[in-house]
Amino acid sequence: NKEHILAQKEVLTPIEYEHYVKHLFDIGEITKELYIELSS
């Protein structure tokens, strides 16, 4: 869920976080809207 993803932002580097969010989007775990929101 969104809270879990945002928690990852605390422990990952910005680049790792971007890759993580992109991966979730690629596998269909999150919607495009959520992907855009989380990567901003």
Rank of each mutant, 00 (worst) to 15 (best):
V21R: 01
T13I: 04
E29K: 10
E18M: 15
K2F: 14
H19Y: 10
E29H: 13
F25W: 12
E10D: 14
L6K: 08
V21K: 02
N1A: 05
T13C: 03
K32S: 11
I15Y: 08
L12M: 15
G28T: 01
F25P: 00
H23G: 04
S39H: 03
H19E: 08
L24G: 01
H4V: 11
V21F: 03
I15T: 12
L6R: 06
G28A: 03
T31L: 05
T31R: 03
L6A: 06
K9A: 07
S39R: 12
E29S: 07
E16V: 05
E3F: 12
F25S: 02
K32E: 11
Y35T: 01
I5K: 01
H4G: 10
T31W: 04
L6Q: 09
S39W: 10
L12D: 01
E3N: 11
E33I: 06
A7K: 06
Y35W: 14
P14E: 12
S39T: 12
E29Y: 15
Y35Q: 03
E33F: 07
L12T: 03
L34N: 04
K32F: 14
T31P: 07
E37T: 09
L24D: 00
L6M: 13
T13K: 07
L34H: 05
N1L: 10
I27Q: 15
Y17M: 02
L38D: 00
V11M: 13
E16H: 04
Y17P: 00
H19S: 14
T31A: 07
P14K: 13
N1E: 07
K32R: 13
E33Q: 07
V11H: 10
H23S: 11
E16L: 06
F25Q: 03
S40W: 14
F25L: 11
D26Q: 12
E18T: 12
Q8N: 08
L12N: 02
E29Q: 13
K22L: 11
K22D: 07
Y35R: 02
I30L: 07
K22Y: 14
I27V: 15
F25K: 03
V11W: 14
T31M: 05
Y20N: 01
G28E: 03
I27E: 07
K22Q: 11
I15K: 06
S40I: 13
I36R: 09
I15N: 13
Q8L: 10
V21E: 00
H4S: 12
E3D: 14
I15H: 14
Y35M: 09
I5M: 05
P14I: 14
N1P: 06
L6W: 05
I15W: 13
H4E: 03
Y20R: 02
S39A: 11
S40G: 12
L34T: 11
Y17W: 09
E10K: 09
F25R: 03
K32Q: 09
Q8W: 09
L6V: 07
I30V: 05
K2R: 12
E18L: 15
H4Y: 11
I36Q: 14
E37C: 05
E16K: 05
L12I: 04
E18H: 13
L12A: 01
I27G: 07
F25E: 01
Y20M: 07
E29N: 11
E18F: 12
I15P: 11
E18P: 02
S40P: 04
H19C: 07
E37W: 12
L12Y: 06
F25A: 04
T31G: 12
L34Q: 09
Y20Q: 02
S40H: 13
Y20T: 02
D26Y: 14
I27R: 14
E3M: 11
Y20W: 13
K2I: 11
K32H: 13
E10Y: 11
N1F: 15
I30K: 00
L24Q: 04
L6Y: 06
I5G: 01
E37D: 13
I27H: 15
S39D: 05
V11K: 10
L34D: 10
Q8S: 07
P14Y: 08
L38G: 00
E33T: 07
I36P: 01
E37G: 03
K9L: 09
K9M: 07
G28I: 01
S40Q: 08
H19W: 12
S40K: 07
A7G: 11
H23A: 12
E29W: 15
E16A: 11
A7L: 07
Y20V: 02
K9Q: 08
L24H: 01
K2N: 06
Q8A: 08
L24Y: 02
S40Y: 13
Q8R: 07
N1Y: 14
D26S: 14
E3S: 14
G28C: 04
T13S: 10
E10P: 07
E29T: 14
P14R: 13
I15S: 12
K22S: 09
V21A: 02
N1Q: 12
K2T: 09
E33V: 07
A7E: 11
E29D: 09
E29A: 15
I15D: 13
F25I: 02
K32I: 12
I36W: 06
A7H: 06
E16Q: 12
A7Q: 10
L34I: 05
E10T: 08
I30D: 00
H23K: 11
I5T: 02
T13D: 12
L38N: 00
I5D: 01
G28R: 04
P14W: 09
I30S: 00
V11I: 14
E16F: 03
Q8G: 03
S39K: 11
Y20D: 00
Y20S: 01
E33S: 09
L38R: 00
S39I: 04
K32T: 10
K32G: 10
E33M: 08
V21T: 04
K32W: 14
N1K: 10
